[in-house]
């Protein structure tokens, strides 16, 4: 049986803030439809690497990249790369849940309004599907017009996940998505990982080795900007 083709391929990638390398000469391939965890101590470069995959570090002063970062068969730093399309195909979930001061429904369709403006009639259906995928539908189906900020932290994080999933990303990047949540909410999001990997590839940054053990198909450990051997 053939190994799944890689959706992410890094070749001699070095990431710097000014002159200081944060990630140093990393080679890596990440397979499709798997949960891959990146773990390591603070400052080991895992979040910087994660954000580089969807070019979210571009505006940081002094940030530079060398080597080749290939995502979904495309060199993300090639001049021909459409960054906005890349970010639609490669969703990113942040550590702290961020919901807009709008209704729950408005939050879910936030990205859809701009990427699929002609499909407004389908938004309720797409929103429902995304909320179901994020495991939130049952809790909010009767109050979709309620303000999103009234949800608990854990629900807000799943709402943010639904908003990202609504765009049907092929890769989902999660930057310590449970770090600011209570254990119960964390467990719900961890369980979602197992079902979501059928639809997209997950790259999950975590500090917690036990969490990596629970969710990962493949674990990658970072230290001092390098991948530790045998991971």
């Amino acid at each position: 049986m053939n190994a799944p083709s890689p959706v992410i391929r890094l070749q001699a990638v070095t990431l710097r803030y000014g002159r200081i390398p944060v990630v140093d000469g990393v080679d890596l391939e990440i397979a499709a439809n798997r949960v891959t965890t990146l773990s390591g101590p603070s400052g080991s470069g895992k979040s910087t690497l994660l954000r580089t995959l969807c070019r979210m570090n571009d505006r940081l002063p002094g940030f530079s990249v060398s080597g080749k970062v290939e995502v979904l068969g495309q060199d993300v730093h090639a001049p021909s790369t459409d960054v906005c399309d890349l970010r639609r195909r490669v969703g990113l979930l942040f550590q702290k849940p961020c919901v807009f001061p709008k209704s729950i429904l408005e939050n879910v369709v936030f990205g859809l309004k701009y990427h699929h403006p002609g499909e407004r009639a389908r938004f309720p259906e797409l929103a429902r599907r995304a909320l179901e995928q994020a495991g939130l539908w049952a809790e909010v189906k009767d109050r979709l017009d309620a303000p999103a900020v009234a949800l608990s932290q854990g629900q807000q994080q799943r709402l943010a996940l639904a908003r990202t999933l609504a765009l049907e990303p092929e890769i989902l990047l999660l930057d310590e998505p449970t770090a600011s949540l209570d254990p119960e909410s964390s467990a719900i999001i961890e369980e979602l990982a197992a079902t979501l990997k059928a639809r997209c590839s997950l790259v999950w940054v975590t500090h917690d080795p036990a969490q990596a053990d629970r969710i990962a198909d493949r674990k990658i450990a970072f230290a001092d900007g390098r991948i530790l051997p045998h991971t």
């Binding site: 969807c54 979210m56 960054v83 906005c84 399309d85 890349l86 970010r87 639609r88 195909r89 969703g91 990113l92 942040f94 702290k96 961020c98 807009f100 936030f110 990205g111 309004k113 701009y114 990427h115 943010a160 908003r163 990202t164 765009l167």
Partner: peptide
């Protein structure tokens, strides 16, 4: 809040869409 801008960027909105939306 920068988090709003970051979220809109991460969802792939163009700069002009971000101006309109956020």
């Amino acid at each position: 809040p920068e988090s709003y801008q970051e979220t809109a960027r991460a969802l792939g909105l163009t700069p002009w869409q971000r101006v309109r939306a956020v």
